[in-house]
Design a protein around this nucleic acid. Structure first.
Lengths: 241, 241
DNA sequence: TATAAAAGTTAGAGGTATCTAACAAAATAA
DNA sequence: TTATTTTGTTAGATACCTCTAACTTTTATA
């Protein structure tokens, strides 16, 4: 039987970063030291030290010079932090009138509050939400996460339409830019054209045409216009294969 | 112009403890090292080190072997933490269905969250409450604290009645005991008799008689039965001088 | 007032989380 | 396959917060 010790903020942040790296891409279920260090804005040497500690606590599988993966308890803990983070974001957005670019920073602090009752009650107060303000799925109380969307606006072909369901980047900069382009969750987007030279996209949103970079498009997650978020798409009509 | 630097959790806890010690008793507006250390469950040596640091940051006035007081910025910071603590307690109690003995522990964590907007919005959501679930006054957004009640149940003479308005001890143990005796905020209490030997009190609450210790009584704050909390008492009727 | 007790400080040490600089292993390219 | 680049590790240092043990100052008491 696994005993869950109290983890420091820092340890929790390492676990969360590992989960986010390994969830990002199905083909790559492990992370590297540099990658992890970059995600946490620390030096690789610092990450190496922490990895030893997390290994001793059996929260990560890791060998010198090898790849890093979360153990089952490590993953469970990381999912719980993500759950708390996204519930708090939803609370700030729905109950306190925060804008979607403000919630992330505060939730980074709130996600570390230790109280199972608090999390459960917050979930209840919010009526067990499925998605946070950025369209990300909130893991449920059992720690289950539905698979997230893999298509981005950058994957949509010219002349096809889609619907924005989430964003991959939660930074203030990006989110404010998204708003400026007239985008929000559930908004329809039509890809007018794609420039083959630099992958710039011309998109139509709310009747307005905008040119956006490939980097921007890669951070907008989309589904077919006829999809309902969280449900299967009607394949006969689907425009984004 | 004072620049407010980011303080660590620990530093904030020292400031809060200093405020609580110096607010407790009007006759003694300063604290000692041992007293402070005891309040924080650390050794006096540890407190001495931290005091040097807080002095460098101009948050406390302090000389070697001398008494400790908060500076104006130090006090301002401490009041802000108390404000956050009590707002969070009120939130947990009113919005999430926590009991009054559960809120303190979680608020100890939440009080350190850094976001002015969060505090302001929380205050608004709660409709600018004056008191927390323990009857303690919540400092307002300007950092003003109304003077708190000075009479305790232990000060009430035999055969006189009073009304409970707050508790001085926020520990789970004490609060559960208070409930067991049938007490809660706004409840009337009649002091039936006082034992001169050990100051045990016989009190009547809700028609039931209980014997309580002096220690217990010293942690129950009361006003005259005809007082409205936060307002002046009708002196002609006041029974607790 | 002299002495004992209480209160407070200093010195030296340990754990955590971070860094830089130097080094080692693995992956990639020539 | 060898050389180069990328990736990852170790060693040594620092800042923070804590401790114990020994010491000093202040306060209280006899």
């Amino acid at each position: 039987m696994y005993f869950c010790p109290m983890l420091s903020f820092t340890e929790e942040n390492y676990l969360k970063a590992l989960l986010q790296i390994t969830m990002e891409d199905d083909d790559k279920p492990s992370a590297g030291t540099n990658e992890l260090a970059a995600a946490l804005s620390v030096k690789p040497a610092t990450a190496t030290d922490m990895l030893k500690k997390l290994k001793d606590k059996e929260l990560v599988d890791y060998q010198k010079y090898g790849k890093i993966t979360l153990t089952t308890p490590g993953r469970k803990h990381a999912v719980e932090i993500v759950r708390k983070h996204r519930l708090w974001e939803t609370f700030l957005y729905k109950k306190l009138g925060f804008t979607w670019d403000e919630v992330h920073e505060v939730a980074e602090q709130l996600e570390h509050i230790q109280s199972q009752k608090l999390v459960d009650k917050l979930d209840e107060l919010l009526d067990f939400p499925e998605f946070d303000p950025h369209g990300d799925i909130i893991p449920n109380a059992k720690g289950e996460i539905k698979v997230s969307f893999k298509k981005t606006l950058a994957d949509v072909d010219a002349c096809k339409s889609c619907k924005m369901v989430a964003v991959k980047d939660n930074s203030v900069n990006f989110l404010q830019y998204v708003v400026k382009v007239g985008l929000e969750i559930n908004r329809d987007i039509k890809v007018i054209s794609k420039e083959s030279y630099d992958s710039m996209l011309s998109i139509e949103v709310n009747g307005m045409v905008h040119n956006v970079s490939e980097k921007f498009a890669q951070n907008i997650l989309v589904v077919c216009r006829f999809c309902e978020v969280g449900k299967a798409c009607s394949k006969t009509k689907c425009e984004i294969k």
